[in-house]
Write a protein that binds this DNA or RNA. Structure first.
Lengths: 177, 177
DNA sequence: GAGAACATGTAAAGCGTTACATGATTAA
DNA sequence: TTAATCATGTAACGCTTTACATGTTCTC
């Protein structure tokens, strides 16, 4: 049990409101996908472990075997400890950047096209983000923490894309013909 | 064998010049760490697999059991195929961003401090990058692909840090008292 | 009645990290 | 001669992905 971010993500999400594994998967697929992807297998397994460890507990049962969980006091303490007293693992992996690093395997024209293709993809990502931003009802529960901090994370994503767009343009000009 | 970026990273590195597992580890620790970290265990194991698959081959043996590899034609073909005909997996995981998403677990003052702490860390990272940039002899082999494209990747890192610095400042002002 | 959405899992395999393990060669 | 560096691995464990598996409830 080294870092176990998923564990803390689940407690943190349940802190906002009790939820089932199914509910949590919606959040992972819709909001958290770009930040911390997770699969059903992982979520259901981790919920079972968390329950057994006494960090969350079943608060309601519904149709189709639905089980809603909420964090226990121990769980909340563990979450705060993780957030305040441990340093995040900042390991970054970027397959795109790895390819840029290895661009010497292509000829110059291909390398330049590669950078311009990154630009095109980033432009498309930005357009998708714009559409997503418009589709969100920002007024709904303006006091909602997930919405407040989610917006801050989204802004990071937007700035990241804008940066990548500018960088890829610049990089293309740096590759001589 | 789904994406196997490490496999392609190794072929790509060996394309620049023949190298041993030990040599490659220097590259991973010094240059590639922020883009695609790898451990000794992984590198030695992958080299053995690559050799067995006929994508690389031993070109020299040295003292202490040293074995230098170079890519075969099949290896180079596989590398180019990966670079040009497959799309990179852009799965991003950021423990820091996950924490920001879950900042509702802290009170406002703590959340603001959290954002400012990110800013401090980013400032320190930027200073370290500046020192690293100065320590590199950019004139040495100006035609070196690894140096050329490595510089482009480094520039991405710098812009990323500058973006994060600005974003964390902005985010701190967005958290009401 | 049919299809979409709800709801929860198991099994297998791959990828990545950490700890352990060993020994040879070079330079001061 | 001693310490640093060179050099290669194995074993164990944990996280992540993919495929498989099953059944219920709601809505049209």
């Amino acid at each position: 049990m080294r870092r176990m971010s998923l564990r803390h993500a689940l407690i943190g999400l349940l802190r906002e409101r009790p939820a089932s594994g199914y509910d949590l998967m919606q959040v992972f697929d819709k909001s958290l996908h770009q930040v911390w992807p997770a699969t059903k297998s992982q979520v259901y397994a981790e919920l079972a472990k968390l329950d057994e460890a006494g960090l969350i507990t079943v608060t309601a049962e519904g149709p189709r075997g639905r089980r809603e969980y909420a964090p226990t006091e121990a769980g909340l303490a563990e979450l705060r400890h993780w957030m305040l007293e441990t340093t995040p693992d900042e390991t970054q992996r970027s397959e795109t950047l790895l390819r840029v690093f290895l661009l010497g395997a292509l000829d110059r024209a291909q390398a330049k096209d590669f950078m311009l293709a990154i630009r095109e993809r980033t432009l498309a990502d930005l357009a998708r983000l714009d559409a997503l931003t418009e589709s969100i009802d920002w007024d709904w529960r303006a006091d909602d923490d997930l919405l407040r901090y989610g917006a801050i994370v989204m802004e990071w994503g937007r700035r990241m894309m804008e940066m990548t767009r500018d960088w890829s343009e610049w990089a293309a000009t740096r590759i001589p013909d």
